[in-house]
Design a protein around this nucleic acid. Sequence first.
DNA 1: CTGTTTTTGAGGTGCGTACCTCAAAAACTT
DNA 2: AAGTTTTTGAGGTACGCACCTCAAAAACAG
Lengths: 340, 340
Amino acid sequence: MRPTTKDLAKAAGVSLATVDRVLNGRSGVRQKTVDAVNEAITRIGFERNQVAATLARQRGYRFGFVVPRSGDEFLSVIVKHISEFDQASRAEMIQTKIVRIDEHDPHRAARTLSRLSADEYDGIAIMAPETPQIRDALYRMRERGIQTVAIISNQQEEDDQSFVGIDNVAAGATAGRLMARFLGNRSGDILVLAETMQSRDSLERRLGFDRVMSPGYPQFHALPTLETHGYPERTNLVLKNALAAHPDIVGLYIMGSEARAAIECARQLKPDGKLITIAHERTPSTEQALRDNTLDALINQDPGHIVRSAIRTLRAKCENRETLASQERIRIEILISENL
Amino acid sequence: MRPTTKDLAKAAGVSLATVDRVLNGRSGVRQKTVDAVNEAITRIGFERNQVAATLARQRGYRFGFVVPRSGDEFLSVIVKHISEFDQASRAEMIQTKIVRIDEHDPHRAARTLSRLSADEYDGIAIMAPETPQIRDALYRMRERGIQTVAIISNQQEEDDQSFVGIDNVAAGATAGRLMARFLGNRSGDILVLAETMQSRDSLERRLGFDRVMSPGYPQFHALPTLETHGYPERTNLVLKNALAAHPDIVGLYIMGSEARAAIECARQLKPDGKLITIAHERTPSTEQALRDNTLDALINQDPGHIVRSAIRTLRAKCENRETLASQERIRIEILISENL
DNA sequence: CTGTTTTTGAGGTGCGTACCTCAAAAACTT
DNA sequence: AAGTTTTTGAGGTACGCACCTCAAAAACAG
C-alpha cells in the first residue's frame, strides 16, 4: 500500500497538521521540523496522491492563455485547440480561458497582464513577442504566485521548464536542408519571406536556414529576407518585384506563420517554373497548398501538443513537480502531402 | 457550480443509489429508469468528476503492455518508455506492467493472454502480429471485461478507438515520395529491405511505397522486397548479392524496425555512390546513422506518444468515454539530421 | 388477492488530502 | 521567572463519488 499523509506523520514523528504545513509550504514551521518531514518523505517513499489532492482542493486549476488580439491563421488554430482542450479537461477539473492582448502596444499589453490576479488564475501561458514591458509583467506575475510559461515564442533565455515550443534555429535549418535537397542539382536564387525581421522567431529561422545553405550549397544564393508586415498587397508587391529583379529564382521559403498571400502568389508562379516552396505551420490554407503541390513541404509545430504541454507544464509547476521531458518536447515536424 | 451526482438524482427524480447504479452500469434497474437518468444527465449537463471517482474507486488503473519476448532495437525503446511512464504516473494511480509473449508461437502467446485476468488488469495494450489465435484471445479478453487496444501493428480492421499507431500505407508512401525527391533527376534501381513480408506492416509499407513510385517516377525501378528475417549475416548476404546483380542501385529503403545490419552495409557503400537511404523508427543506431549521413531520412512514430496514447485510450474505455481524437493521432514523422 | 420477485430508496462508510480552528507546548525575550 | 512569540497537535469538515446493506415499495405471477 502506498504511504499516506498519515503514515508520513507517524514516520516523521509529527502530527498531520504539521505534515500538511510542510507539504503545502505553509509558514510557521521550524526548519528543523521541515527537514525531519522531508527526510521521512524520502525514507518511506511518500508520494502525494494528486487525485485526492485535487479533489480536496476543491477548485481544480484555472489557467489562462494570453494570445495576441489580432492574429494570423495559425493563431486561430491555436485558439481552436485551447477551447477544445478546455472542453475535454473539464472532467479533470481544469479550466482554461483565453486572454487577448494588444501585441502592438507593449504598455497596454503589460497592463492587461498586471490585472491578472492569483485569485483568478493559477497559471498563465503566454504567446507574445518579447519586450521589456512583457518581461517585467511576467516577472511580477510570478511574484504574485502565478505560474507562467511562454509558448511558441520564447521569452528571453528561460529555462526548459518555462518554454513550450520549438527551436526556431533548428526549424530554419530543417527548412534549409529540405530546400537544398529538393532542389537537387539545380542552382539559382532563393527568396526568403517574413512578416517582420524584428521578431526573434524570424531571425532565428533565418539564421538556421543560412547555416545550412551558406556552407553546404554554394550553388544556391538565399536573398535578403523580404518583409510583408502581414499585408497581402505588400506581399504581392515585394514578391513581384523580387521575381522581376532576380529571374533565376528556384526556391521560396515562407518563414512567417501567415502564408496565405505568399502561397497564392506561388500558386500562380508554380506551373511554369519548378519553384520549390516551403512554409511553416499547418493551417487550412497551407494544408491545401501541400495537397495541390503548391507547397513542397511544411515545417510544423503541433498546436494541440503545444496547448496540452503548456497546461501540463503549468500544472506541474503548481504542484511543484518536474515534467516528463520527453513528453513536453515539441517536435519540428516535416509534412509533405503523404504524411498529412 | 458543476452538477454533482446529488443534483443528478434530484433532476432525475430518483435516489443517489439509483444514479450510482446507472452510472456504473450495475444491474437491477428498469430500462425506463435508466432512460430517465440518462435524459437528466444530458438535460442538466452532468459530467462525472473523474478525480473524485478514481479516488473513491480506491484502486486506480492497472494496465498491461503485451510485447514480444525477443525484439529489435525499436522494441527496447518502447519498453523504456513504458517504464518511464509507469514511474511518472504513479501519482495518478496508474500502474503499468509489461507482459512478454512468444511472438513465434501463436498458441503459447494466446495461452499467456488467456491467463490475464480482470482481477489483475483493467486494460491491455498489445503489440503483436495478427494471428487467428491472438485475435481470438483478445476477443475473449474483452468478454472477461478487460479493455484492449492494439499498438503499432493493427489487429484486423479495428475501429479507431482500438488501434494506436500509424497508417503504414501512408508511411510507405511518405518514404517513397522522399526517396524520389531526394534522388532528383537521377535514375536507377531501388532496393527494398524487410525482415519478412509475412507481416502486414511490411506489406502495407511496400504498398504505399509503390503507390507513389510506380505511377509518378518511371525513371526509378523498385526491386522486389528482400527479406532479412532479422539476421545480420543474411542481411549482408542479400544486400551484397543484390548490389552485384544490379549495378545501377541508387536508393535503399529499409522497411523493418531493425535497421542496424542494413545501415552498416549502407555505411560501407555510401562513400562512393550517392545512395539515398531511408529507414524507419528512431533508435540509437538510426539516429547515429542520420547524423553521420548514412541515412538521408528516417520515418518515425513517436514511441513515447504511442505508450501514453495507449494508456489514455484504455483509460477512456474503462471510464466509458471518448478520447480526444487529435491527441491520439500518431504522426508519421519525417526526421532528418536537422530536426532530430 | 396473495405471494414472489424485481426495483428503488435511505443511509452509511471510506478514499487521501486540503484547510480551518483552537488550545497546548515549546522556544525565545527581557 | 514571567511574559511573549512561535511552533505544534488534536480534531474537525469537506470534496464527489464508489460501494455496501437493509428495508420499503413497486411490479409481476399465479
